[in-house]
Design a protein around this nucleic acid. Sequence first.
DNA 1: ATTACTAGTCTTCGAGTAC
DNA 2: TGTACTCGAAGACTAGTAA
Lengths: 217, 217
Amino acid sequence: MMISEKDFSLLLFIAKNAGLNDVVKSSTSEIASELNFSQQTVSRKLSFLAEENLIERKVFADGNILSLTEKGKKILLERKTELDKIFSSKKRIKLSGKTQSGLGEGKYYVNLSGYQKQFKKKLGKKIFPGTLNLKIKELELNEFLSSKEKILVTGFSTEKRSFGPALLFKVKVNGLVDGAIIVPERTNHPSDIIEVISPFFLRKKLKLKDNYLVSLS
Amino acid sequence: MMISEKDFSLLLFIAKNAGLNDVVKSSTSEIASELNFSQQTVSRKLSFLAEENLIERKVFADGNILSLTEKGKKILLERKTELDKIFSSKKRIKLSGKTQSGLGEGKYYVNLSGYQKQFKKKLGKKIFPGTLNLKIKELELNEFLSSKEKILVTGFSTEKRSFGPALLFKVKVNGLVDGAIIVPERTNHPSDIIEVISPFFLRKKLKLKDNYLVSLS
DNA sequence: ATTACTAGTCTTCGAGTAC
DNA sequence: TGTACTCGAAGACTAGTAA
């Protein structure tokens, strides 16, 4: 079931006039002139909304008695929740860093299938087999990461050795490109270099060279 | 300009992914599969939204960079405000009263064109030339009225005499019918009788006789 | 890979009316 | 007054395809 904009306006009209738990009495032509629809459209749409169980409707000789059903209220609430989220989201804190040439270490780890599988599952996409190294200010990093959700990547063992767990923090690189900061869960040497993974080869996609300024948000 | 449901979904998609003040990069087909539209529809609708100045759009060979304009944000905010109102409205307090036969006094005052004009302007409809008298409990009345918005009706003078200002409080009679309680602004004798005006002849419309119970909300 | 035009199909609208 | 059916017109959608 897909409700149209006009359907939604009608639902809103009923909600406004009846409230969530009361009824409103009105005729199709009265509603029509209020919403700038035709009388016929209101008639058709009221039937539809009642059929879909979004409203309760009783038709009398002099108009309709209308109220919202639980399902109707739910639809309105869903909309409200979506909009609330959009307007309540805090301003993104940004973190700036400068590109560094990596040692190829990141590439090795990120390529391990024990990690790759989890990246795909938790970030939704296959990750480019390499990392972008950024030099940042440690103090800023802590503040930045504390505003982000932690995603845990568990450790695993191969026949030869074991690999520790890590944390991912989703970011937008230069405001556009999806990526994630990856840090070992228990790092013994705090560092001012972070590694960013992404479905894309970031150096190429963003045309980066060493010592270029990159923003994460 | 009337935006459709699909337009709105698209706007919402951009708002969710770009946030209010940032951009998002995506292709028409990517958005299409996300929203279950066709690629062509997304293309058409993005053009439309950009034309209507609801979004800013830059088209590149590998997709679009999209963000909300102030006008786009405003539309979302309007929706949010409407829904907030619906969900924040307190439960209506009700007031019960019993019908009384009036003295015809109310009818006289309500009929004066100096008042009638204001009724029409402030309540939106021509008022039936008569009042419904209800006997209520004064304590309940105060609480009830304090939850309502006051609408002021100004006094006026004719050649013969002058008429004082009054207050209106919009109500629903028996949960259905629009009406308003009217009280003189400076009443010298507090009373347990109130007068209700309405676009309709309430006694007839609600099939009332003396001493019938009527609810106001 | 993209975006977006064309053209045919499907959906939705409202004027005219019936009841 | 009401609601709501029919039916022709207008609008919106997508498959095919060009660029």
